[in-house]
Structure formats: C-alpha cells, structure tokens
Design a protein around this nucleic acid. Sequence first.
DNA 1: GTCTATAAATGGATAGAC
DNA 2: GTCTATCCATTTATAGAC
Lengths: 208, 208
Amino acid sequence: MNICSYTIGGMARTQGSHSDITGPRIRAVALQLFAQHGFAAVSMRQIAKEVGVQAGALYNYTPDKQSLLSTLMEEHMRDVLAAWQARRVETAEAGAQAQLENFTRFHIRFHMERPDAVFIAYMELRNLSEDNFMTVEVLRRSYETELQRILDEGVASGVFTVRDTKVATLAVIAMLNGVMTWYRSGGRLSLEEVETAYWDMVRKAVSG
Amino acid sequence: MNICSYTIGGMARTQGSHSDITGPRIRAVALQLFAQHGFAAVSMRQIAKEVGVQAGALYNYTPDKQSLLSTLMEEHMRDVLAAWQARRVETAEAGAQAQLENFTRFHIRFHMERPDAVFIAYMELRNLSEDNFMTVEVLRRSYETELQRILDEGVASGVFTVRDTKVATLAVIAMLNGVMTWYRSGGRLSLEEVETAYWDMVRKAVSG
DNA sequence: GTCTATAAATGGATAGAC
DNA sequence: GTCTATCCATTTATAGAC
C-alpha cells in the first residue's frame, strides 16, 4: 500500500520517494499547525498525517522537533530582513519621514502576508534552545535596528521629536504587530486603509 | 510520611489538609509555569511538585487542566476591569486628555505588576474551550471599550484627531502591551520614566 | 525516502486507603 | 484533603524491512 512508481528526470523511484517536495511541505504544515495550536500542543504524528507520510519519515528532514521549529523561525527572520533590504532602497536617498513611512507600510504588509510565521516568531521563543534563541534574537535585533536608525536620523535632522529612540522603536513595532491580532481581509477596512491609519499614528507619535 | 498534624481555628487536622492555602498556591504556581513554558508544555505533575503535593491532589481544586487555565485568565481580566473602575474615578470629571493619560499610566503600571497573568491572557487563548474563550473575550472587549470611549469623547470635543477610534484603541493597547516584552526593573529607565515616554507617544499619536 | 513496528518515557485523570 | 497506585492514551524518537 501507498506505493507509487514514477520517473523524475529519468530516474525511477519507488515507495513514495519525494525528497524534493516533502521537505518544504513538512515546513509549511508545521508552520500552520504550530501557529494554530502552539508548538508543544502539536505532535509529530499530527504533522506527518497532514503531510501525508508516516511519522518516522519526518526524521529524514529534521533531527528533532525543536530543530523544525528553529528552522522555521530563522527562515522567517531572514525573509523579513531580506525583504526589507530590498525595499529600503526605494527611500534610501529620501528623508527620515519618507523612510519611516516606507518602513511602516512595508512592515504591516509583509507581516500580514505571513501571519503564521510572525505568530510563531513572537510566541514560541521560549521553546528554543539557548543557542537557537540567540540566533533568532540577533536577527530580530538587527531588524529593530533598521527602524531605530531611521528614528535616530530623523531626530538628528530635527524632523522627529522622540525622547528615547530605543523605546520608540519597540513601541512602534509593537503597535504595528498588533494589526495581526485583529485584521482580517474582507473586513471593514482594506489593507491599504489600515496601512494609512497606522502610518498616520506613527507619524504623529514621533513628530514634534 | 508527609503527615502533619496541627490546629487551625480550634479544628484538628491531619494528613496534610490545607484547603485554605493549597488552592491559591496551585493557581499561583500554575500561573508562573504556564507563563514560563506555555500551557501545553506544563504537566499537572510539574505543578503538583512545585506546590508540594501529589498530582492527584490537584483535582480537588480543579476538574481538569483546562479549567485551571480559564480560571486564571478570567480572574486576571476581572482584576484588570475592577482596578480600572477604581482608578478611572480620579479623572471621571476631567477632560479626555487627562482621562487618556490616566488610562495609559494605569495600563502600563498594572500590567507590569502582573507580567505572568498578562502573558497568559494574551498567549493561551487558543487553549480555551469555545465557551471559556467567549467569556474571556467579552471581558477583554469590555476593557478595550473603556479606552475607545475616551477616544470617542476626545474626538467629539475636538481634543483628539483620530481617523478610526476602533483602530486607534487596538493600536494604543498593542503599543502599551509591548512594554512587557522588554522592560525589566532595575534597567536604564524607571517605570515612571517609561510611563511618561509612552504617554508622550500616545498623546501625540491621537492629537491633531 | 518511506514504511511498519516498537522502545521508553510521559501525559491527564481516576480509585481507594487513610 | 492528600497520598499511593494505576489505567490508558499519547509522546518523541529509533530500528530495520523494502
């Protein structure tokens, strides 16, 4: 049972060998289940069932359950950083205000497109080993520093008035992250309107 | 073994009967452990060990593990509401700006004094049954409505300029909750300074 | 690479003695 | 009210066949 036989790239495979799709599929399923029920509440059997393999097969792709989690978190943090690096060039030559608007709109939109990954990255930190925690934490700090740099630049040029840019950085990110707890597409507001509403508050919060 | 015999209020007790202190102690321990490791990751045996009783004894105080969680969450939400009802009278006759400052400072201070309960109330909602979830959700909405009422009043009187008071309510609360993810007493800033820094941002964010 | 089978530990919850 | 003992389900992870 469960035997399939087909060819990929001229090489015959049997017994359900799907190395190229099973790996990503496991991560996608784990991401969704961890976000929905929490890391500790999801079993490897549950993941395997949703993927369509037996539990033992998962261990061809991850040494253990916790590595699966940390891989998801690290991948997400690297995705965020890479996406911002690509987007920040749009306002690299502009003033601090334009950079802040760019960051605000980027953050909301990017995070709304990956609610599961965001949820996990903020909720499951306590389930990481010390080493994995440090890795993720460094990546997060690196992202936060991007915002703080914009605020510092704005304060230096007199565009922003902020007592403490470190506190303001954390306050702004917390505010923006809050969108994910309530926004649902198809609701009263479009994502564009939400972006604008939050940008309006962020702009005023750091202004003079 | 583990037998103690003493008197409370003239009534002799044996075999480690501590009905009046074990209950609260179980809830205190569960609160701390759930906050630290997450509801699903904490076993009843772990709680019992920390309390100093055997696992079976816990079931004299809760019908099951989930009821223990929902009790903690409901108690917390009722505490928040009661504390705010007591504090809001200070600015009941004042303008919207003074009310908002009162709310902001109250929220930060009250929540910082109960980081475990706050953490659980926001992170473990998915582990509640549908009924218990609804109960907690209604209490939370009720608290959020307090802030929204202040914002509505300020917009009506022209003190505040906010596009959407519902969005602003959620944004402000998310921002204030963020304090708990980074603030540690004994750090660079006092709680008073943090209150003031956040109030500064909140005030500007809703201003014209 | 996946399967079946299983080891070894741990989970929530209950029964009955004291 | 607590303890000891236990039931039964479920867990992570591994071993070996195919």
